[in-house]
């Protein structure tokens, strides 16, 4: 299947390291590398890391906010992919979304363990099941859509955005978000619904 990767680079301005700039999107074939990963070819792991390692690291770091832990989680993510590649449909599965799902789950597991919070939501492992990444919407792997999502998130009101981010980056359910934000559950549901509607709108056909 055809996939895409966002290429990041870092620039130096007056000696200060700036956030990565998204420079370009390259269409790449993940199917081949996944097939080789299934044959346990080490070079395939290297290629997969080169494509998605940075993305995985940034997500883990955003969630756990500790560089050392984030590095460990990246390693766990690729270890899991290495061990579970056989279950992946190399021709129809999307490697990037799968890796990000694994990284997010491992990171949220870590947060939960730290806070001794019991998972009362959908089993996270389910969200990284290889079957979920078969025939992944091609448009989602397109940089323009990703940029639209980012823009949509930035346009949300502070409460709506906070609610969405608590769900995504901390894995909180709506009830937990309501508790965290000291708001009635109904209010949080309204924010979430509104936020999702706005994101859908910004994404054109998505979720229509």
């Amino acid at each position: 299947m055809s996939s895409a990767a966002i290429i990041h680079a870092t620039i130096q301005v007056s000696g200060r390291r700036m956030f990565p700039l998204i420079l370009a999107v390259l269409a790449m074939e993940d199917g081949d590398v996944l097939a080789r990963l299934q044959r346990r070819e080490p070079q395939a792991l290297a290629e997969l890391y080169d494509r998605y390692g940075g993305m995985v690291y940034r997500l883990a770091l955003r969630i756990v906010r500790d560089t050392g832990i984030a590095e460990d989680l990246v390693q766990e993510t690729f270890l899991r992919a290495w061990n579970r590649a056989a279950a992946f449909d190399s021709q129809r599965g999307a490697a990037g979304p799968w890796l990000l799902a694994i990284a997010r789950n491992r990171s949220l597991d870590y947060l939960r363990a730290q806070s001794r919070r019991v998972a009362n939501t959908l089993e996270l492992n389910e969200t990284e099941h290889p079957a979920r990444f078969v025939d992944f919407p091609a448009e989602a792997l397109n940089f323009d859509l990703a940029r639209q999502v980012k823009h949509a998130l930035e346009q949300l009101g502070p409460d709506e955005r906070a609610a969405i981010e608590l769900a995504y980056f901390e894995g909180l359910s709506q009830s937990e978000i309501a508790e965290r934000m000291a708001q009635p559950l109904g209010t949080v549901k309204t924010w979430m619904r509104r936020a999702m509607a706005r994101m859908r709108e910004s994404m054109g056909s998505v979720n229509r």
Partner: peptide, 25 residues
């Protein structure tokens, strides 16, 4: 699922440390 992926894919942040590649490999 695509939307969720996009939220993670566009995150800004620092590059992964160079030595991490060796650890993963």
């Amino acid at each position: 699922h695509a939307l969720v992926y996009s939220m993670g894919a566009v995150l800004a942040g620092p590059e992964a440390p160079r030595e991490l590649r060796g650890r993963v490999l």
